[in-house]
């Protein structure tokens, strides 16, 4: 059954394609989960689920958004199935993660901390948009929200980050 018993493990084209997105997936999952270990679990499950559904990927050029969508759903599923406790803002382990620190740019480090502290309802669409490259229409579809709701959440996410950047928040953020 195994065509190459004892062969070196290199994987096939689809496996290699999926693996090239591992860094992107890990980064994306980290911002959703705010926990490195959970992010790694999400990525592992994502790659397995993607491999099982590989026939759905008709165009390799669409692999990245396809994988990120799977990752987002895996992250949501993880919380649903394992009933992981939600993390208190002040006790987010990731805030002390050395990966967040930027030498010579304390502002960027602070911004990362502020993004981690954003409520999930604001952080998730922001990460999907800025890091994932999803349009507001796609985000609305994926999160089961109206486009107006997505616009409001994205507006509020950025508005909260404005103070970190030394800007005045828009007064309409109520």
């Amino acid at each position: 059954m195994n065509p190459r018993p004892g062969a070196a493990s290199e994987g096939g084209p689809i496996t290699r394609l999926l693996e090239t997105f591992r860094p992107d997936l890990l980064r994306f999952a980290f911002w959703l989960a705010r926990d490195r270990a959970i992010a790694e679990d999400v990525v592992q499950e994502t790659l397995i689920r993607a491999w099982k559904s590989k026939d759905e990927l008709k165009d390799p050029a669409a692999a990245r958004p396809w994988l990120l969508t799977i990752a987002r759903r895996e992250h949501a599923r993880l919380y649903e199935r394992k009933r992981l406790p939600t993390v208190d803002v002040e006790s987010i382990e990731a805030l002390g993660d050395p990966a967040l620190a930027v030498d010579g740019d304390a502002g960027l480090t602070d911004l990362r901390g502020a993004i981690l502290k954003l409520p999930a309802e604001y952080r998730e669409p922001l990460v999907m948009q800025v890091l994932g490259g999803f349009s507001t229409t796609e985000i609305a579809q994926e999160l089961g929200l109206t486009q107006a709701a997505v616009l409001t959440r994205l507006f509020r996410a950025r508005n909260r980050l404005r103070t970190i950047y030394g800007l005045t928040p828009d007064e309409e953020d109520t």
Binding site: D97, A99, V130, L161
Partner: peptide, 24 residues
Amino acid sequence: TLMLDQRVRAALELQLAQFRTPAK
């Protein structure tokens, strides 16, 4: 907002080399 967005993008782009170091 456009300037802020550049910073947000940079903030989200974590360096994987650092990301893989052990947590404090």
